[in-house]
Simulated scan of single mutants.
Amino acid sequence: MNKKSVLMISSYLLLYIVFPAILYTLKVSNPMLLALTFVANVLLIILASFLYKETLQKDWLLLKEQEGSWGKLFKDITIVFILSKALSVIGIMLVSNFINIEDLAQNQQMLNDFFQNNPFLFSAFLMVIFAPFIEELVFREAIIGPVHQDKRNKLILNTIISIVLFTAAHSLMLADAIIYLPITLSLTYIYWKYDRNIIASMAFHFINNGLAILMMYIQFKLL
């Protein structure tokens, strides 16, 4: 892991995890909490853009210059997206006799509550812009990206670490991995399929989260 990766991950932990936790502990009013969290998130995006400017430009141009690459990418994303959802359903069915299925919905319920209790634009920014951009840089590029392609064992190890950390970061309990592991594997697969192209995995992440917040918007607008 190079200095850029350490700075990216440290900044993510500080601005996205520690800073909001401190504000919450201090019982800052909700409007102020949202405003300060938004500022912290924007600062993190600016820092990440500066740190990975060359990588983002290079990966964007690689996709742009290859004829038919965008069409192929969205076709692959569609197929992998459907497969990931199918795997989640199968996983839930397999463990339904061993755990309380309602426990699996706690994280989703928290997302629903967050969506209902906060401005739509803030929720959309967090899920559709911030998460795909920052999380792909933190959990994919910062962990897997710096490893030279000749170091096969190190690449495998860092890929496993990336998968475990991303899944854990989105799970309130161990059982939540049944839901989030398939999408984690899918994001990692797209990242690797396109030769560790961070723009490719960002596109998948963007579409996945965009569809999720669209479904929540429709659900709560209809209720």
Rank of each mutant, 00 (worst) to 15 (best):
K3N: 14
S5Y: 12
V6M: 14
L7Y: 06
I9C: 14
S11N: 10
L13G: 05
L13E: 04
L14T: 08
L15G: 05
V18W: 04
F19I: 08
L23S: 04
L23P: 03
K27I: 11
V28I: 09
S29P: 03
M32K: 10
L34D: 09
L34R: 13
V39E: 04
A40F: 13
A40M: 14
N41H: 12
N41I: 07
L44Y: 05
L47F: 04
S49N: 06
L51G: 07
K53Q: 14
L56I: 08
L56K: 07
Q57F: 12
D59R: 01
L62C: 12
L62N: 13
W70M: 14
W70Q: 09
K72C: 05
L73S: 02
F74N: 06
I77W: 00
V80Y: 01
F81C: 08
I82W: 00
S84E: 11
S84L: 07
K85A: 07
A86M: 15
V89A: 11
I92S: 03
V95K: 00
S96T: 13
F98E: 14
D103E: 14
M110N: 08
N112H: 09
D113A: 11
F114K: 05
Q116K: 15
Q116P: 10
L126Q: 12
F130Q: 06
A131C: 12
A131G: 09
A131N: 13
P132L: 00
E136N: 06
V138F: 10
V138W: 02
R140E: 02
I143T: 09
G145D: 13
H148L: 14
Q149G: 04
Q149K: 06
Q149T: 08
Q149W: 04
D150M: 11
D150E: 15
D150S: 15
K151I: 11
R152W: 08
I156P: 12
I156S: 09
I156Q: 10
N158L: 08
S162I: 01
I163R: 02
V164Q: 02
L165F: 07
T167M: 00
A168G: 12
A169R: 05
S171P: 07
S171D: 10
L172V: 06
M173V: 15
M173R: 15
A175P: 06
D176M: 07
D176K: 03
I179A: 08
T184G: 15
T184P: 04
L185F: 13
L185T: 11
L187H: 02
L187M: 10
T188E: 01
T188D: 00
Y191V: 12
W192N: 13
W192P: 05
K193R: 15
K193P: 11
D195Y: 02
R196L: 03
A200F: 01
M202L: 03
F204W: 03
H205E: 02
F206Q: 10
N208I: 06
L211F: 15
A212N: 05
I213A: 03
Y217D: 02
F220T: 14
F220D: 13
L222I: 13
L223H: 10
L223T: 12
